[in-house]
Nucleic acid binder design. Structure first.
Lengths: 140, 140
DNA sequence: TACACTGTACTATATCACTAATACACCTTT
DNA sequence: AAAGGTGTATTAGTGATATAGTACAGTGTA
């Protein structure tokens, strides 16, 4: 099991857990439809309270990332495309945040650009497929 | 004054304030060396407690984003380049986060790439210069 | 010096977030 | 029905957050 939380980090445990689960899903460690460990089992492994795990699961369900049912368990939901407009706004916000971060870090435009290209290449297969544009092998 | 905080948002006021100040600096609304409003003045305008503003200022000083001195006030610090290795790690982390976000949003690679390019173009002049270090900051 | 500004420290208080312990509700299998 | 798994509600304790009020400390200026 790849989860790890630090109660002393200042970041709420359930938030840490949410982030790790999101990442696990995005990277493919967890697949659509897969059953998550039970709240008790995961709580036992992380030495935390089942309610803390439950809170993480609940919030992830509100975000449509998990699907849970009493007596059955929690499962990884299918990725679903949200509103076009909301998607655009959320993406813009994320990019804005990235730029602010880059500014604070004194990262120059070229370094940022190169870093992005590399990272995108690594993630290309994980991201959802677009309209049709499938043109590999073009690297500047 | 462009600051705005919402006590009901769930996010601590001092955190909201920190984010807005960071953004203001990154976008150029606040310039290096500029004096920040006093804790009392800003507290009065936002209808919050001076201690809350002070806490935001203090944390920003710890992050080397502000410089404050008793009797003088708080000022926007000069952007300084951190450790090369830390910079790289932080940037990679930020990019990783962006990818996870894009995955959750079901944004395809092309849309993400185009969005990034556009955003980068808008921010190019704000980001630090790479090879040649030109610094035309002698107006005023 | 006296004064007016700056940030800071110190209580005290109220509220809320976070976590934990316990008990409850639901589903499947025997 | 019983048992053993699932998630969830309830309650309570602890700490973070925000407020208010007061006092202190440093700087610049009249």
């Amino acid at each position: 099991m790849w989860y790890y939380v630090d109660p002393q980090s200042g970041v709420p445990i359930y938030v840490q857990l949410k982030e790790q689960i999101k990442k696990a899903i995005a990277t493919g460690l967890l697949t659509e439809g897969e059953q998550m460990p039970s709240v008790r089992e995961l709580a036992l492994q992380l030495t935390i309270n089942p309610n803390t795990v439950s809170k993480a699961y609940q919030e992830l369900e509100r975000e449509r990332i998990l699907q849970t049912a009493r007596g059955l368990g929690s499962f990884v939901a299918k990725r679903r495309k949200g509103n076009e407009q909301e998607q655009k706004i959320a993406l813009d916000k994320a990019l804005e945040k990235l730029m602010i971060e880059a500014y604070q870090l004194s990262v120059d435009a070229d370094t940022l650009h190169n870093g992005f290209i590399d990272k995108l290449a690594a993630w290309k297969d994980r991201l959802v497929k677009g309209a049709k544009n499938n043109d590999p092998g073009n690297r500047t």
